[in-house]
Design a protein around this nucleic acid. Structure first.
Lengths: 142, 142
DNA sequence: CTTGACCTTCCCATCGTTGGAAGCCCCATA
DNA sequence: TATGGGGCTTCCAACGATGGGAAGGTCAAG
């Protein structure tokens, strides 16, 4: 199976497959006599695994750890769970940060008339001191 | 005022100040006879403005637009508001995406025993077909 | 045999930021 | 006055993850 077929079947682009091989995330693929990379079904499984993990926000280093666990038949499910939970915490942290930014910005925009006049509290708050940068403190801890 | 002082006062690192100058976000700073960049209070205001906008998630291109509006005394506040609202929409979109990832992953982790045994639905779902990629609530844990 | 679609490697770009190296400058202290 | 250490200058590289493209080899169909 050529790299193009592997890409189509796994959802990982040919570019990224070569990249993952280069950085050592996946082992070097087998080669045909003419130098083409040659993939089989287990490789597709692995690439699909990577695609899923990537879609769930795992960075490369953690996908590498997940792959090790995936291949290790003597793994402890606690190790897998710990990785997943750490990722969830990281995602929740990022979400909270973006939420703060969005809430603050929305609050600023809400106070702006949005007409033809130049005065705008958004610019005003941006240019002045940073005393009250968090108006959205009381959010439901959903 | 040296670049180090400007960095300390504005909250923008010296590295980034040089970078912003290089990419044209800010005009080239004045120079002393010996070639040092020389900053005054208006420059600090501008850098602070940039730092605030950056902390609110504006990309460089939009900060540039905001700076233009900031300097334009004949601006229309509607233009500023539109930029801010577009940024809020973008942030909310990113938040929704991260939320999906976190919910799905949390759901997967919830079904994992987290003990010394190797079987783990997280790895299981990652390696099998893609019907599990839907948002967390859709799927009833069987 | 030609053509076109594929493959190979290599380089460059993104975006915002940080780090380092080599070399010059400024100030304080001995 | 000399010296040392910090700050300044520029340039180069890297990060994560991906895309684009050039130059050249290979494969399969017409």
């Amino acid at each position: 199976m050529n790299i193009g077929d592997a890409a189509a079947r796994s959802g990982v682009s040919a570019k990224m497959i070569r990249y993952y091989e280069r950085i050592g995330l996946i082992p070097a693929a087998a080669r045909t006599a003419s130098g083409y990379r040659d993939y089989a079904d287990p490789d597709i499984h692995m690439l699909r695994f990577i695609a899923r993990a990537r879609d769930l926000g795992f960075p490369i280093a953690e996908i590498s750890a997940l792959l090790d666990l995936w291949r290790d038949k003597d793994r402890r499910s606690a190790d897998v769970k710990a990785l997943a939970q750490a990722r969830v915490r990281d995602l929740r942290h990022k979400i909270a940060h973006l939420q703060d930014m969005a809430d603050t910005l929305e609050d600023l925009a809400q106070g702006c008339a949005g007409n033809d006049r130049p005065d705008c509290p958004i610019l005003h708050r941006l240019q002045t001191r940073d005393d009250a940068a968090a108006p959205a403190q009381e959010r439901t801890p959903s």
